[in-house]
Simulated assay, not measured.
Amino acid sequence: MDLSTFPPIAVVLDGLYSIVTALGELVSPFAGEAGAALGVVLFTLLVRLVLVPVGVSQVRAEVGRRRLAPAIADLNRRITDPPARSRALMALYSSEKVSPLAGCLPTLAQAPVLTAVYSLFVHADIAGHANALLTHTLGGAALGANLFATLGAGLAAVWPYAVLLVLLAIVVELSRRATLRFTGPAATPAAGPGKEALPGMTGLLRWLPFLSVAFAAFAPLAAGLYLVTSAAWTLGERAVLRRVLTRA
């Protein structure tokens, strides 16, 4: 069953389709062929503007965890029993009104929007009418096709995907380094002096942010545009909020 045909979902998709189409038409006089792609970028910026309060909550929690880092390190050192250590950490977070899960909020809040953008560019019909977004391209690459579906079309059709993936990888790496500088290495409770509780976890955390790059390679080009724009916004937003909230 195609969930995009379910009436409530179809209405939402049709509304988003109208917004992206209207934004594309608004900029098409000077953007030309890239109007629809620019419409996706503008739509992403609108979404991120709406989610600014979520970003503030996330950075405020980061600042709180940074302030609590010495106390957390002390708990990890003094309490060796995992259940007892978890209870002590939760009690510390609760007493200081710091959420250990706030870092997940932007990702969770954006997931439905990203899914909707993905759906807009993989369905030939939206709410019973033809999906005109699929007729648009960026640099010769179809907004509704992914990298692997375009490989046989030659370099002229592939280069927009390559540029997009490189840009996304750069932004993800810059974000990872900025977070590491601000919060320090992720603290994982040690199993004992000089021992790592979860072998290989550091390496996993190092590469985990790049899953979005892998997703972009398999997703429609339009979804990749959403990811790059959103990641760039996040990088700038966190830089500003970290400075402002740390001073506050």
Rank of each mutant, 00 (worst) to 15 (best):
P106T: 00
T107Q: 05
T107W: 05
T107K: 07
L108A: 08
A109L: 12
Q110N: 09
V113Q: 10
T115L: 09
T115F: 11
A116Y: 05
A116S: 10
A116W: 05
S119H: 10
S119M: 10
F121P: 14
V122G: 14
H123V: 06
A124K: 13
A124W: 14
D125T: 15
I126V: 08
I126W: 07
I126G: 09
I126F: 07
I126N: 06
G128A: 03
H129S: 10
A130Y: 13
N131V: 01
N131F: 07
A132H: 14
L133Y: 08
L133K: 03
L133N: 07
L133D: 03
L134V: 08
L134S: 11
L134R: 10
H136V: 02
T137G: 00
T137A: 01
G139V: 00
A141H: 00
A142T: 00
A142L: 00
A142G: 06
A142E: 02
A142N: 01
L143E: 04
A145M: 03
L147A: 04
F148D: 01
T150N: 02
T150V: 02
T150S: 07
T150G: 02
G152M: 00
A153N: 02
A153Q: 03
G154E: 05
L155M: 03
A157R: 04
A157F: 01
A157L: 03
W159A: 06
W159L: 07
W159K: 04
P160Q: 04
Y161S: 03
A162R: 06
A162Y: 03
A162N: 05
A162D: 03
V163L: 08
V163N: 02
L164V: 01
L165G: 08
L167D: 04
L168C: 06
L168Q: 05
I170R: 05
I170V: 09
I170H: 04
V172E: 10
E173R: 15
E173Y: 15
E173Q: 15
S175D: 12
R176T: 10
A178M: 10
A178Y: 07
A178I: 04
T179E: 14
T179G: 14
L180F: 13
L180G: 11
R181S: 15
F182I: 06
G184M: 12
P185W: 13
A186M: 14
A187L: 11
A187H: 11
A190Y: 15
A191M: 14
A191P: 13
G192P: 11
G192W: 13
G194S: 08
K195Y: 15
E196P: 14
A197F: 12
A197C: 06
L198R: 12
P199D: 04
P199C: 05
P199A: 03
G200P: 09
G200I: 01
M201I: 11
G203I: 12
L204D: 08
L204Y: 13
L205K: 15
L205A: 15
